[in-house]
Design a protein around this nucleic acid. Structure first.
Lengths: 212, 212
DNA sequence: CGAATCCCTGTTGTATCTATGTTGTGCGCA
DNA sequence: TGCGCACAACATAGATACAACAGGGATTCG
């Protein structure tokens, strides 16, 4: 009945809740509530919360509860800066691009186009993320890859999902991906970096607009 | 009687053990052992292990135990690359350097000199680390600061402590710090970056020599 | 003699229980 | 009415107890 371990279920539940803004920033979750909500005991709840804290999504206050960290201007800036750093580094390192990488990116871009055409923006958003992650992953650095994933999670929480709110935004995103791919194909690392810079900065701006 | 929480004690115990090579890479720790060793129950042990896993020092295998991750060539390379990236970025961002930062670095360098003169290499190693961390911290990016701290921990585990084994190594380290400070003071970011590159690469080479 | 199976032991995963600390509230007093 | 203190409610931190699972070795059957 329950394939995934209880701690994992709690982790996903809270993470989804935070990312989807069901649990708002600033609210105080208690272990008991979560235990009841997910249907497990409090022990796995603590384990899940611990992982979330390590990822920077929540903050555990002794004897008080788990505070869902509100996104601060500082955090938006930090995430954006770090994304820039990691992704730009990955792009430079990816040049000259291997045929495998190019093929993978083409595939992802095509997939995203289809999803957009089908109106499935949620899926397109996931593919968007995969596109960037593929570039970073191609660097072969596990530390950076993991870090980058966490950054994307945190950015998701900032409401960057609204990036896929309107058709013009989707088109912009798609166009920039195409340009990144193009620059990579041409071996022009600096052009790819500059597009990435714009892309990330745009996401950060959206987040800033969202938060306040 | 017990100021620090039990989970924290476990965390420190295992971390120190791994960093000081008391627990060798590849060994399998069980919760029961650790619980007895530290003198607490298994509950806080699990919490501590979970944190360690998030930091990449150990790996939890279901129903088997906590594997102390052996340092791999891949990990050495990844840590070095990431350190380069973060520290170089921080140095560039730190230029032009604020008087506060310069003062702090001068203070740390002086302190390290004293410690070396006193023969207290352990303390000098800690100060060394503070020096680099100060540069990164000056960037004001909490994500990068935290990441950098974790990287230094992991590098410690790779036996980079032997960096402070001989007088000539200590002298080299000290000289490079002085050069970094000098470049920063002069506003020459690229010189600082190149020294940092050498410095980190040197540490990685030591690690490679240590491991095999 | 070899291989498959079954049981036994050790370890984690989860639940429950106790102790302790923190917070907010309400009562009494000035 | 306002301030302060004590108490009660609640939340976590830690310990213990129990269940489920994996792996190894002995045993047994072919």
């Amino acid at each position: 009945m329950k394939q995934p371990p209880a701690a994992e279920r709690v982790y996903q539940h809270v993470k989804d809740g935070v990312l989807e803004r069901r649990y708002e920033g600033g609210s105080l979750l208690t272990e008991g509530e979560l235990a009841e909500a997910v249907g497990v005991s409090r022990t796995p709840v603590r384990e899940g919360l611990l992982r979330l804290e390590a990822e920077g999504l929540i903050r555990l206050y002794p004897k008080k509860g788990a505070l869902v960290l509100p996104v601060s201007a500082q955090e938006i800036a930090d995430v954006a800066e770090t994304r820039q750093l990691v992704e730009a580094h990955a792009a430079r390192k990816a040049v000259p691009a291997s045929p495998q990488l190019i093929a993978r990116l083409e595939e992802l871009l095509e997939q995203q186009r289809r999803q957009v055409a089908d109106g499935d923006f949620a899926a397109a958003s996931v593919t968007d993320r995969c596109f960037h992650a593929a570039v970073v992953r191609s660097g072969g650095n596990e530390i950076l890859t993991k870090l980058y994933d966490q950054l994307r999670d945190r950015q998701l929480r900032m409401g960057v999902a609204v990036m896929y709110a309107g058709p013009e935004r989707v088109a912009k995103s798609l166009a920039e991906h195409a340009e990144i791919l193009d620059a990579l194909r041409a071996g022009d690392a600096e052009r790819a970096v500059s597009v990435i810079r714009r892309h990330v900065e745009w996401a950060a701006d959206l987040a800033r607009g969202e938060v306040r």
